[in-house]
C-alpha cells in the first residue's frame, strides 16, 4: 500500500515543488511512485514531470495533477493499492486540498525558509494542523528547513524561535541555499542527477530521514 507524503506550506516560493519533485524522483528509485501536483494551474511539479517525460527519465515515476480536494482524494484512492509512494505537492494556501493532505498523509513535510514572512504564514497553518490532529492525533508534520544558511545568526535564531513558538518537529537534514535546486528543477532533473555534490549529499540525507520516518 502506498505511503502518502504531503508537502504543505501556505506561503508561495518556499521550495514546496522543489522538495516534492526531488523527493518523488528519489523515492521512484525505490518503488512505484506517483507525484500529484495539487497546485494547478501554476503546476510547477507537473511542468517538471513533463520535461522529465520528454527526456525519457520518468522510470518508476508517474506525474499527475489534482484540480481540487475531491479529485485529489479520488486519485489517491485509485493509486494507493498500486503505488509504493504517493507524493503530493499542495497549493500555497490553506484550502480544502491542504486539509485533505494533512489527514491522508502518513508524513507531511513543511518546507520553511529562515525568514519572518514564512514563519508568519506557517503560524496560520499550525492552527489547521492542530484542528486536523483533533481528528487524527497521529498526524506527523515536520518542518524541512530550506535555503538554510547555517552560518548566519538570523537563521539560527529563527530556527530556535520557530521551534519554541510553532511547536512542530524538524527534520535534521537541512537544505542549503544552492542554485543546484533551481537549475535541476528547470531541466526536469533532481539534484541527485545534478553536479552539485553538496546538494546531492544533503538531499540524500533528507530522503534517508523520510524513509526512516515512514518505516
Amino acid at each position: 500500500m502506498a505511503k502518502i507524503i504531503g508537502v504543505v506550506q501556505v506561503k508561495g516560493g518556499v521550495g514546496r515543488s522543489t522538495l516534492a519533485t526531488n523527493l518523488a524522483a528519489a523515492l521512484s528509485l525505490e518503488g512505484a511512485t506517483t507525484l500529484i501536483d495539487g497546485d494547478v494551474p501554476q503546476g510547477t511539479s507537473a511542468s517538471w514531470g513533463a520535461l522529465r517525460r520528454e527526456a525519457g527519465r520518468l522510470g518508476n515515476l508517474t506525474v499527475t495533477t489534482a484540480q481540487d480536494h475531491v479529485e485529489l482524494v479520488h486519485k489517491a484512492r485509485q493509486l494507493v493499492g498500486s503505488q509504493d509512494y504517493i507524493v503530493i505537492d499542495g497549493p500555497p494556501r490553506i484550502a480544502e486540498i491542504t486539509k485533505v493532505m494533512l489527514i491522508m498523509s502518513r508524513l507531511c513535510l513543511l518546507p520553511l525558509g529562515a525568514s519572518a514572512a514564512e514563519v508568519w504564514a506557517t503560524g496560520d497553518l499550525v492552527q489547521t494542523v492542530e484542528a486536523a490532529r483533533r481528528r487524527r492525533p497521529e498526524i506527523d508534520v515536520r518542518i524541512v528547513w530550506n535555503r538554510f544558511r547555517e552560518h548566519t545568526r538570523s537563521a539560527r535564531e529563527l530556527s530556535e524561535a520557530v521551534h519554541a513558538q510553532l511547536g512542530l518537529e524538524e527534520m535534521q537534514a537541512r537544505l542549503g541555499y544552492r542554485v543546484a535546486y533551481g537549475e535541476a528543477l528547470g531541466r526536469g532533473l533532481s539534484v541527485s542527477e545534478w553536479t552539485d555534490r553538496l546538494a546531492r549529499d544533503e538531499f540524500g540525507g533528507l530522503v534517508a530521514e523520510v524513509k526512516a520516518a515512514l518505516a
Binding site: V73, G81, K99, M104, T128
Partner: peptide, 23 residues
C-alpha cells in the same frame, strides 16, 4: 494489500469531512 487499502477508506472519508469543516 487489498485489506490495507480497505483500511485506508475511513481515512479518505475523514479527509473529505475535514475539508468541509470550518475552524
Amino acid at each position: 494489500r487489498t485489506d490495507k487499502v480497505s483500511a485506508m477508506k475511513p481515512v479518505f472519508e475523514e479527509a473529505l469531512a475535514f475539508a468541509q469543516e470550518t475552524a
